[in-house]
């Protein structure tokens, strides 16, 4: 499996916020860095297929075959502070219905296991997301990114609002995933990406 982005540029009714961004990775941790407003979150949204680039392309190759658009969406997991869930549903209900809407329904056991990995086992079934703290919501976002077991993970500021236990859980998962797939992490904190295998720096 290979993640490939070529010549990406994005502008919003003005000069491009970034241009000529290219990246190719088969596994490992890729850091996306840059000052505030440099387009890190926008770049990750383009990688995730949630936004169209002004120029360039994003592809995923598997066994020498370029994945079609629908397959590509499932192959990429994304978590961002912008991501929200329905307040009136529990975390487990949110993830279960989203997996069913994606056409890849997960059993309640699989979803419980996923949320448990982020320390949300009990709260995920007992409490609605609207009652969650900001740190708990961040854990649900990270769990959501892993919902369809994607080989490519895009994490935008993944440790924001997390306590040390949450950070440790997220780091452990990330370290496991980077061995077998690609983890692309956008952050302002250099400590999070000290051991990155590659870096995309946006100025």
């Amino acid at each position: 499996m290979k993640f490939e982005a070529k010549g990406l540029a994005k502008s919003f009714a003005g000069p491009p916020i970034f241009r000529d961004v290219s990246l190719s990775a088969e596994s490992g941790l890729v850091a996306v860095t840059g000052r505030n407003g440099s387009g890190k979150s926008t770049l990750l949204k383009i990688f995730a297929g949630l936004m169209r680039p002004s120029r360039g392309s994003v592809d995923i190759w598997s066994d020498g075959r370029r994945l079609a658009e629908g397959e590509r969406g499932d192959a990429i997991g994304w978590a961002s502070p912008e991501l929200e869930f329905i307040d009136e549903l529990t975390a487990a209900e949110n993830l279960s219905l989203l997996s069913r809407a994606a056409g890849r329904p997960k059993t309640s056991g699989a979803i419980a296991g996923l949320l448990d990995a982020f320390g949300l086992a009990r709260a995920a079934h007992d409490r609605r997301v609207g009652e969650f703290s900001s740190g708990m919501k961040q854990r649900v976002r990270l769990a959501f990114s892993l919902l369809l077991e994607p080989p490519v993970l895009l994490w935008d500021e993944p440790y924001s609002n997390l306590d040390q236990q949450g950070i440790d859980a997220a780091r452990a998962l990330m370290n496991g995933r980077r061995e077998t797939g690609v983890v692309i992490l956008a952050t302002n904190d250099r400590r999070d990406i000290e051991d990155a295998d590659d870096e995309v720096s946006l100025s």
Binding site: L50, S80, F85, I86, A101, A102
Partner: peptide
């Protein structure tokens, strides 16, 4: 408005 469209857009056609 609630930001929940992103999760739906990421998963569903």
């Amino acid at each position: 408005e609630s930001g929940t469209a992103l999760a739906l857009r990421k998963t569903a056609a």
